[in-house]
Nucleic acid binder design. Structure first.
Lengths: 134, 134
DNA sequence: TTTATTAGGACCAAAAAGGTCTTAATAGAG
DNA sequence: CTCTATTAAGACCTTTTTGGTCCTAATAAA
């Protein structure tokens, strides 16, 4: 239908929550999941991945949890959404090189490309500081 | 992953093809499907639907086929994509009213709304005349 | 009446989305 | 050193969506 996935939405929710906490605080997965209304096991998956790509830091063991890896201002909606959903593309043909075979003459191709550029720009313009509720 | 569906892509291809033909010509489904490299049975489904929503006219029986229902300039990418994929929405919460329960306080909600507005504007800005190869 | 062609709907397979569960690793507290 | 709290990793599952086929009916022209 054309929208970000629920996982990406959940990721954004969680990140906004982290951004709303004191910068050096380590937040429990359980608490975060509960606060933003996401199944904890799924939130775990999502944040494991965000940790792997370097958007958050994770700490294991007792007193463990998550915190932002950068100041909120340095993390954009685009970062989060693409970390979870993969690169934003208006159409398959833009990412899967040669998957279409019509690029050479297709008049729509460059249009998709341009629009997707603008969309990414918009998402890049919004950062976690803008979204934090503190 | 965040892109229009293949059906929407196929629809656009077909519509561009129609726009590239003389205005009053009736184009065979089989020809159109072949020319733009789409399975004919699927193309049939897609154009049946485009006919139902009034973007194309269809003619049954011998010498039947399809033609645009309006001048190419009056049909936009947004028209076609939304006819097939449904309304464009950055996030579920924007269309499925009350499906989220967080709208009242969610700081991201209005952001999704704004960005999706811009995206729709961009898609509305491109019409079939721009895309026709004639 | 025959033939060409779209309409409609049932049906199906593959992929993606959304989510759970189990086990391992690890860090801190006693 | 051991126990406990907590994330990591990955297997696994269910539901929904996507992409597609096929058959039968309607219809228009020759």
């Amino acid at each position: 239908m054309f929208h970000i996935t629920r996982k990406a939405d959940y990721a954004v929710r969680g990140m906004v929550h982290l951004a709303s906490q004191p910068a050096d605080q380590i937040t429990l997965l359980a608490e975060m999941a509960m606060k933003v209304d996401v199944p904890q096991a799924l939130m775990a998956k999502i944040f494991q991945h965000l940790a792997k790509v370097g958007l958050v830091r994770s700490f294991r063991g007792a007193r463990g949890g998550f915190q932002l890896a950068k100041p909120p201002k340095g993390i954009t909606l685009l970062d989060i959404v693409e970390a979870i959903d993969g690169p934003i593309a208006m159409n398959r043909c833009i990412i899967e090189e040669g998957a279409c075979g019509r690029e050479s003459f297709c008049t729509v191709h460059p249009v998709w490309k341009k629009i997707q550029g603008k969309l990414r720009d918009e998402l890049r313009r919004v950062n976690l500081q803008d979204l934090a509720t503190r």
